[in-house]
């Protein structure tokens, strides 16, 4: 093996440049697709909240519907989305955030036009135990959040008691309680700060 000082340095530089070139070009050719995938993921979730996902869930179709019917809307400082029917806003998706059992839970909650009903829910980020708390991202749990009347007669919007409006997940009590608490807190904050009735 060569004993010079310059050789290893030069060798390392050449190898590094070669591999970086390969990676950079690979990245360059796939970046559009990756960005599209990420955006599509969010669009898919927002449409799910509004319950207007097209059948087959084709990414192109999702993009079309999203661009046509959904607009971004700020509620005070809360980012959110509004669903349009012609020129009228028919429902809203508001962002919620809080701590679950293992990490933050972030998602969107759908509300109808006069904020009296919850119309849907979707989670953007959650790191709950897969197969247990992680099941909050599965259909049966999320479908419970369709058409829930919002009233505070029991002191809270959402309750997981036997006569409540949302069932908890068996074996994932901490996560279920956390989700309901996060939503209740976020709804209270939302109604206070956004000043809507």
């Amino acid at each position: 093996m060569k004993k010079s000082f310059a050789y290893p340095v030069l060798y390392m530089i050449i190898i590094t440049i070669t591999f970086i070139t390969v990676l950079a070009s690979f990245n360059y050719f796939t970046i559009d697709r990756i960005v599209f995938n990420e955006e599509n993921d969010l669009r898919h979730k927002i449409l799910y909240v509004f319950d207007i996902l097209p059948e087959g869930e084709d990414p192109q179709e999702i993009e079309e519907i999203f661009n046509e019917r959904v607009i971004e809307k700020q509620f005070d400082d809360n980012p959110g989305y509004a669903l349009m029917e012609g020129n009228d806003e028919v429902s809203y998706a508001i962002r919620f955030e809080g701590s679950g059992l293992w990490g933050s839970i972030i998602g969107y909650l759908g509300l109808n036009d006069d904020f009296t009903q919850i119309i849907g829910i979707e989670f953007i980020t959650q790191s709950e135990t897969p197969g247990l708390g992680g099941r909050i991202s599965e259909e049966p749990y999320k479908e419970q959040y369709r058409d829930i009347e919002l009233d505070t007669t029991e002191g809270k919007y959402l309750v997981s008691t036997p006569d409540g409006n949302v069932d908890a997940i068996a074996g994932a009590t901490s996560t279920s309680v956390a989700v309901v608490n996060i939503l209740n807190e976020n709804l209270v904050d939302f109604f206070e700060s956004a000043e809507v009735d």
């Binding site: 093996m1 390392m12 390969v22 796939t30 990756i34």
Partner: peptide
């Protein structure tokens, strides 16, 4: 060169892993 082979190996390994990661994404 023998004494920098580990650096080279790690560089090679990470390059392929990044390719896999990008591909999956």
């Amino acid at each position: 060169p023998k004494h920098i082979r580990m650096m080279i190996q790690v560089l090679i390994i990470s390059s392929y892993v990044i390719i896999v990661d990008i591909f999956l994404k």
